[in-house]
């Protein structure tokens, strides 16, 4: 679509001499490609190429100036106790965060949304504050609060119940607990907001008609609230699985580096970081990355299938 020069000249934007080159600016066929160009460039350079390159590298041994094709060797080498430990830690962490960070915020959101609740906006704002703080600062705070000293906050707290002081970060179970506490602290307000948004989308009339039919609070919760919260719950579940399996920085900060006694804080991404960046084995690290990708995709796929998300189109 080419506009005549005189038309544009007399227009509001006019004044400028409209040459043939300027007519490109009026083309509705070309315009969308100009708008999406930043994405196309960034996608090719910073996404498609790296994905392609990591897949290739995972079949190679990569050292500076020397690359050899090793077939499936990197993947075979994954069959080792340290990687198993990382997978186990990441899986336990993910499952525990799901067990806490889905039901608790859901129930809290229902409470916060109830007619009986006072100062809703205030509490909504306060529960959100932890999400603003960087994991680095959180790691520092929690590392010191869960310090081994008798006078560190958490040891003081359990001391109230007559318990002996604990070296929280030295054993697998208590350090997992600390990681879970950090995750809960950080995400409870965010998940609560997601569920709250979901609750506020449920039409009030549904509850009113249920009340007319004499439905109890429990029946209303299980028959109206829960089913209508399904889409947002699936969203929260999906991001939590991804977040859980890609956890790294929390552990990195808690242990002041990517090293913990007996690798009790080692996660899959921690292993990727160690092998790929600390030891410089880019090929092996890539194999760890691809395995992580396949693992999360498989879990997401199973979960979406389980919830019947593929049955209906949006």
């Amino acid at each position: 679509m080419v506009r005549s020069g005189s038309r544009a000249e007399s227009s509001l934007t006019g004044g400028k001499q409209v040459t043939k080159r300027n007519n490109i600016l009026y083309s509705q066929k070309l315009a969308p490609y100009i708008f999406v160009l930043p994405f196309i460039i960034s996608f090719c350079l910073f996404f498609a190429y790296p994905v392609y390159s990591t897949v290739i590298m995972s079949f190679q041994e990569v050292f500076p100036g020397q690359v050899t094709f090793v077939g499936l060797d990197n993947y075979k080498e994954l069959w080792n106790p340290t990687f198993f430990k990382a997978v186990k830690n990441s899986t336990i962490y993910t499952v525990l965060t799901l067990l806490v960070l889905i039901p608790v915020p859901l129930v809290l959101a229902v409470f916060l949304n109830s007619k009986k609740m006072k100062a809703k906006n205030f509490f909504r704002s306060v529960t959100f504050i932890p999400a603003l703080i960087s994991i680095v600062v959180l790691g520092i705070i929690f590392r010191l609060m869960f310090g081994g000293q008798e006078t560190a906050l958490m040891n003081q707290f359990i001391g109230l119940f007559g318990l002996e002081k604990i070296a929280w970060l030295n054993s697998a179970s208590t350090s997992m607990l600390v990681l879970l506490v950090i995750a809960t602290f950080r995400w409870i307000g965010v998940n609560l907001l997601y569920f709250l948004a979901g609750l506020q989308n449920i039409p009030h009339s549904l509850y009113e008609s249920a009340e007319i039919d004499g439905a109890s609070t429990w029946v209303k919760f299980t028959r109206i609230t829960m089913p209508l919260l399904k889409p947002i719950s699936i969203y929260v579940l999906t991001i939590s699985i991804y977040g859980g399996y890609s956890m790294f920085v929390e552990s990195y900060m808690l242990y002041a580096g990517n090293k913990s006694p007996n690798d009790i804080g080692l996660t899959i991404v921690g292993y990727l970081y160690r092998t790929g960046l600390e030891k410089g084995e880019l090929g092996f690290g890539s194999a760890v990355g691809i395995t992580l990708l396949l693992l999360t995709l498989a879990i997401t796929f199973i979960q979406l299938k389980f919830f019947g998300m593929f049955k209906r189109e949006e």
């Binding site: 190429y49 390159s53 590298m57 990727l272 960046l277 990355g289 999360t296």
Partner: peptide, 16 residues
Amino acid sequence: VMMIPLEIIMLPLYKL
């Protein structure tokens, strides 16, 4: 792009 976590492509990005 939204679905794939950064961690998976951090090594090739580092090389890039």
